[in-house]
Design a protein around this nucleic acid. Structure first.
Ligand SMILES: [Zn+2]
Ligand SMILES: [Zn+2]
Ligand SMILES: [Zn+2]
Ligand SMILES: [Zn+2]
Lengths: 161, 161
DNA sequence: TCCGGTGTTGATATGTTATAACATACACTA
DNA sequence: TAGTGTATGTTATAACATATCAACACCGGA
């Protein structure tokens, strides 16, 4: 479990270690972190916020790395398949993984005010949903768990105003 | 908890009671179940499957009830706000509520093969996600819990082939 | 009865997100 | 060198969603 994203931390460290971990994983599994893919990962890592595919695309375009939607979508697909990023269904947007390398079932806390996102963890076969699935004979392959609300900072701001 | 949608049941009964409950709720809360809204609810109730806004719109259009996107979206918004339907984020689609009237926090089991959807229940402040949120000081307002996988029927079919 | 507020619908246009389809470049290897 | 697989480049379009303004009905109070 991690609430990174709502907490102060050494973020350049956070970015560097994520990139290193991605490189290591690519080397280990024979994946290619090409320039576009690497840049998209960097963009996602820049803040603990979800970015839409077209936000990404605008950046890539500004940097001369490609201007058509598939450029962004293919890079994002690669990152998601490789486990370097996650898609946030409730926002139609993408975020860098903060548990890079570890096998995990992500869950997200999404602030509706500042759009910051923290990645937590669930065990998809546990809890009430797991019980319901077992009772129904349903075989879970993937879970989407996304909580929306207010992060600590935005609650404080709300209270102040 | 309910795994309706994967189980055989008297579906016309299922539809009728849902419509009745919706009517009762509209009467009680001074909401208006207008012809378009009622028809959209019926369409969503027809099967335990999620329908896209444009699927709905195509039906409405064929029946002369409106042909522009806002017609469908307004009706869907009403149904969702009234608690008569839910939006499935992972599919960008909508489904009728099977706990109509009861105050609840829905969770969904979505079959990737036959697209049928069963509505279950979660307690959003419970479980690991609730723990994570509390630890982070995050205030949860709404949760999206959607499990994707294979329903019992499709597992059987898979095994047979 | 008239009027103004509110809520619903009708219609056009536009914005946003995502993929299909096809062509090309490039690296590896048989 | 020819063949294979992966990644890119490019055009077009599909699919999902909202903004905006006009018209109309319904209801309570003047
Ligand atoms: Zn960080
Ligand atoms: Zn916030
Ligand atoms: Zn039914
Ligand atoms: Zn199925």
């Amino acid at each position: 479990m991690s609430d990174l994203g709502f907490k102060a931390h050494d973020h350049s460290d956070c970015v560097n270690s994520a990139i290193s971990a991605a490189e290591a994983r690519c080397a280990a599994f024979d994946l290619r972190l090409t320039p576009v893919r690497r840049r998209v990962l960097e963009l996602l890592l820049a803040e603990h916020r979800a970015l839409g595919a077209y936000d990404i695309l605008a950046q890539l375009s500004a940097e001369g790395l490609g201007a058509q939607p598939p450029i962004a979508y293919r890079a994002l697909d690669f990152l998601v398949k490789a486990g370097f990023a996650h898609r946030i269904e409730a926002l139609n947007a993408y975020i860098a993984c903060t548990h890079l390398g570890a096998d995990h079932t992500p869950a997200f806390l999404i602030c509706r005010s500042c759009q910051s996102v923290a990645e937590s963890d669930t065990a998809m076969t546990q809890g009430r949903l797991g019980d319901a699935a077992r009772a129904a004979g349903f075989h879970i392959e993937h879970t989407v768990v996304e909580a929306q609300g207010l992060c600590p900072a935005c609650q404080a701001q709300d209270a102040a105003s």
